[in-house]
């Protein structure tokens, strides 16, 4: 049986929703979008070969994502006493690669990201690739790779998730 291909609009809707969950701080729902072996990766350099022997800005498995989410809620997360907020602005995702038989899809989404904390605002831009897999009819993220256009810049604290 040939697996049914997922329409690009459904993939795009998934990507939009994923960003919205972050913007609305619905972290538990967001966390469930990732497969067990998933990675959330923001490389430090262009064309970075891996997240193991190269330093990354983020290279988080589900355990680390869980810690990050729980820490944001911790009463003694001092850097969040004045909470940060974020807003993603996404360009329409495009389908870069797909393997419908394995239910694998890779989307590419240029973005702008705003992170604020009272009077401070940080603006980042780049391209996100979502490596998605369809499990029991539901899309899940195997890899979210965020490539900042200025990945090699000196940054202030980046406290939320892109």
């Amino acid at each position: 049986m040939v697996a049914e291909s997922i329409p690009t609009t459904a993939l795009a809707d998934f990507v939009y929703r994923e960003a919205r969950l972050l913007d609305e701080k619905r972290f538990d729902e967001w966390y469930e979008l990732f497969t067990e072996g998933a990675h959330y990766w923001m490389p430090l350099t262009r064309d970075q070969p891996n997240g193991e022997t190269c330093t990354s800005l983020f290279y988080e498995d589900k355990l680390l994502l869980k810690v990050r989410i729980e820490r944001l809620r911790h009463p003694n997360a001092f850097s969040q006493q004045q909470p940060s907020f974020c807003q993603h602005v996404l360009q329409q995702p495009s389908l870069e690669a797909s393997d419908p038989e394995a239910s694998l899809y890779v989307t590419r989404t240029p973005f702008m990201y705003f992170e604020t904390q009272l009077d401070r605002q940080l603006i980042l831009a780049g391209v996100t690739h979502h490596h998605l897999i369809c499990v029991n009819g539901a899309l899940r993220i195997r890899l979210k790779k965020i490539e900042l256009v200025n990945c090699d810049a000196a940054f202030p604290s980046i406290q939320l998730l892109l």
Binding site: T53, T55, Y59, R68, A77, F78, S79, P156, I158, Q159
Partner: peptide
């Protein structure tokens, strides 16, 4: 590289505090 990312990065929860 893991230590540096976890503790010293602009994205580090330890570094933030």
């Amino acid at each position: 590289t893991t230590y540096s990312r976890l503790i010293n990065a602009p994205t580090s929860m330890v570094g933030h505090d």
